[in-house]
Amino acid sequence: MLDTQRLRVFRSVVASGTVAAAADNLGYTPSAVSQHITALARETGLNLFERVGRGLRPTAAGLALADQADAVLARLGEAEAVVADLRAGRTGTVSLGYFASAGSAWLPHVVTRLTGEFPDVRLDLSLLEYLPDDPAHRPDLQVAVARPGWTPRPGFTAHHLLDDPYVAVVPRTHRLAGVAEVELAELAGEQWVDNDAAQGACRAVLLEACTAAGFAPSFHVEAADYPTAIAFVDAGIGLTVLPVLGTRALPAGLCTVRVVRPTPVRSIMAVLRDAAAHTPPVRAALETLRGVAATCA
C-alpha cells in the first residue's frame, strides 16, 4: 500500500519544481523530502524524476502517478473533513452545486436558511455549470439547467424550479430600446456578444431557437459569462441575448426587450441525490429554492 505522506511530499516536489522549494513549502528539510521521494520510488519501483539543470522534471511515470495522487489526496481530504466535523460535534455535510446566475440570485437565501436552522451542518458549495457525468461527483443538491426531455440518472430526482425566458439586452440608444418585444429573426443582422461557454446548456438553448428562426448568430465578441457580456453591450460593442435571471443588475444605460417567435427558454431544475433527499437540510434547501424561484416566475 502506498504511503499517503510520501504521496503528499511527491506532489509538492512535482508542483514546486525542486526538492529545496518543496521543503520550504512544506516546512521540511531538503534531506527529509529527498528521503520521502527515494522511499516512494523504491516502494513503486518507478523512476519518478529526471534532473534538468538544478531542478527536477517528472518522468512520464511520475506524471501518471501525480494524476492518481491528486485523486487519492482529494478523497483523503474529504475524509479528513468528515473526521473534523465529527470531532467538532457537527452532524454532517450537505453539498450544494449551482450555476453562476442562480448562485448570485438564489444561493444567499438558501445558505442563510441552512446556517440559521442547521448551524452544526457543514455546507460544501461548488460552482458547477454542468451536471458532472460521474454520479459520484454530483452534490447532494444541484441547481442545474436541463434540456427538454432530460431525465436524471438512477439515484437522482429532478424538481422543476423555473422556466427562464431569454431577452435581448441592448443600449438605451439602440433602435429596439423601448419596444415591447422583438422577433428573434429580426436580430439576425445585429452584432452579437456571446455570453456562455461554447458547450454550455444555456448557449445550446439559444442556438436551437436561432436555428428554428432560420439563422445562426454571428458572434462579434465572445464572453464566457453574463457580467462580461453585459459590460461589452454597455460599451457599445453589440447586443446579447440571455435569460431573465441573468439581467438582475443591468447598468443604467441598458434595457431588455422580450424575444418572441420563438422565445428561447431554459428550464432550471433542482437535482437531488435520492440518498440525501430525505434529510432536513436538503428538504429545507429545496423548499427555499422553490420559494425564491416562485418570486421570479
Score class of each variant (00 low, 15 high):
184 L>N: 02
39 A>V: 00
12 S>C: 14
267 S>N: 08
22 A>H: 04
104 S>Q: 14
59 T>N: 03
268 I>D: 01
73 L>T: 02
26 L>R: 02
130 Y>M: 09
251 P>R: 01
236 G>Y: 03
244 V>Q: 13
190 E>Y: 12
272 L>E: 08
37 I>E: 01
116 G>F: 02
203 R>V: 04
51 R>A: 13
258 R>N: 06
122 R>W: 08
213 A>R: 09
277 A>C: 08
33 V>R: 01
119 P>L: 05
53 G>E: 10
170 V>R: 01
107 L>F: 08
82 V>Q: 12
160 H>N: 07
206 L>C: 06
276 A>H: 08
223 A>L: 11
71 A>N: 08
163 D>N: 12
141 L>I: 15
128 L>N: 04
29 T>R: 15
35 Q>R: 14
10 F>N: 00
153 R>A: 14
169 V>R: 00
244 V>I: 13
290 R>G: 15
17 G>M: 11
138 R>E: 07
215 F>G: 09
127 L>K: 06
145 V>F: 04
226 Y>C: 11
161 L>G: 02
73 L>H: 00
196 D>F: 15
292 V>C: 05
81 A>D: 08
276 A>D: 11
258 R>M: 07
264 P>Y: 04
95 S>Y: 07
178 G>W: 07
58 P>T: 06
170 V>Y: 00
13 V>D: 00
46 L>H: 03
37 I>W: 00
143 V>K: 01
246 G>E: 02
134 D>N: 11
15 A>H: 10
178 G>M: 10
20 A>P: 09
274 D>F: 10
234 D>Y: 00
263 T>K: 06
246 G>T: 01
252 A>K: 06
284 A>D: 08
219 F>K: 01
117 E>R: 10
118 F>G: 04
218 S>H: 14
247 T>L: 02
68 Q>E: 11
155 G>P: 04
63 L>Q: 09
274 D>T: 09
203 R>C: 05
285 A>N: 05
157 T>M: 09
83 V>Q: 14
205 V>G: 03
89 G>Q: 04
251 P>Y: 00
207 L>W: 05
100 A>D: 10
12 S>K: 14
30 P>R: 01
253 G>R: 04
81 A>T: 13
96 L>A: 04
293 A>H: 00
187 L>G: 06
191 Q>S: 13
146 A>L: 12
61 A>G: 05
264 P>I: 00
79 A>S: 12
75 R>I: 10
32 A>I: 02
247 T>A: 05
284 A>F: 08
77 G>Q: 02
124 D>C: 11
72 V>L: 15
120 D>S: 12
120 D>F: 11
169 V>L: 13
116 G>R: 12
269 M>C: 09
291 G>A: 14
173 T>M: 08
110 V>S: 04
294 A>G: 04
37 I>R: 01
145 V>N: 03
270 A>Q: 03
203 R>N: 07
38 T>A: 12
245 L>P: 02
293 A>G: 03
38 T>M: 10
202 C>G: 07
272 L>N: 05
219 F>S: 01
203 R>T: 07
189 G>M: 12
138 R>T: 05
109 H>V: 14
239 L>Y: 01
267 S>H: 15
71 A>Y: 08
